[in-house]
Amino acid sequence: MTDFIRGLLRLRRGAWEMLASILIAVGVVMLMQPFALGLYTYSFIVTLVGTVMFIIVSHFPE
């Protein structure tokens, strides 16, 4: 866990890509769930932020 946090603080690609991927996955789950309209409402924004974050992070050094 400390390596993950250290990677985030040093702006390394691995940790940030993992965070962006988790954000994309959470957005997709929010989109597919049938229970809460609030989660569905923000699912596109969460997925979009994760996708843009992944594109930007892919230019970080390893």
Rank of each mutant, 00 (worst) to 15 (best):
V52K: 06
P34T: 04
E62T: 14
V49G: 12
I22G: 13
L48V: 14
E62Q: 06
A15L: 02
G7L: 03
T51M: 13
F54H: 07
P34F: 12
L48Q: 09
H59V: 05
L31A: 10
F35I: 09
Y40N: 12
A25N: 06
Q33H: 06
W16L: 12
H59N: 06
L19C: 08
S43Y: 09
V28D: 04
A20W: 02
L37Y: 01
V29H: 03
G38N: 09
T51L: 07
A20V: 09
I22V: 15
T47D: 08
T47G: 12
M32H: 11
V29A: 15
I45L: 14
Y42R: 03
E17Y: 00
S43M: 09
M53F: 15
L39E: 07
I45Q: 11
I45M: 11
G50H: 05
L48W: 09
T41D: 12
W16I: 04
F60V: 08
Y42G: 12
P61I: 01
E62F: 04
F35R: 06
S21K: 03
E17H: 03
S58N: 11
L11H: 07
A36K: 14
G50L: 09
Q33I: 05
W16D: 02
P34G: 09
Y40E: 05
G27E: 04
L9K: 04
Y42T: 07
A36G: 03
D3V: 01
G50M: 05
Q33E: 10
R6Y: 10
M1H: 10
P34C: 01
R12S: 04
T41Y: 12
F60C: 02
L37A: 12
F35H: 14
G50T: 11
R6Q: 15
S43I: 12
G7W: 02
L23G: 05
I24F: 05
V46E: 08
G38H: 06
A36M: 12
T51E: 11
V29S: 11
E17Q: 07
G7I: 02
D3F: 06
F4V: 02
L11N: 10
L48E: 04
L19K: 01
L37D: 05
M30L: 14
I55Q: 01
L48M: 14
I24V: 15
P61Q: 05
G27A: 10
I22P: 00
M18A: 13
H59S: 13
G7F: 01
L23E: 08
R13F: 02
M32A: 13
M1K: 07
L11R: 00
V57G: 03
V49E: 07
L37W: 15
P34H: 08
L48D: 06
W16H: 10
I24R: 08
Y42K: 02
M1S: 07
I24A: 04
I45V: 08
Q33C: 07
L48C: 14
L19G: 08
T51V: 15
T47A: 14
R10D: 06
V29G: 09
V57I: 03
S58L: 00
L19F: 05
T47V: 03
R10H: 10
F44H: 10
L48R: 02
V57L: 07
I5F: 15
A15D: 05
A20R: 09
V26T: 02
F44V: 10
H59G: 06
D3I: 01
Y40W: 13
V28T: 08
V46T: 15
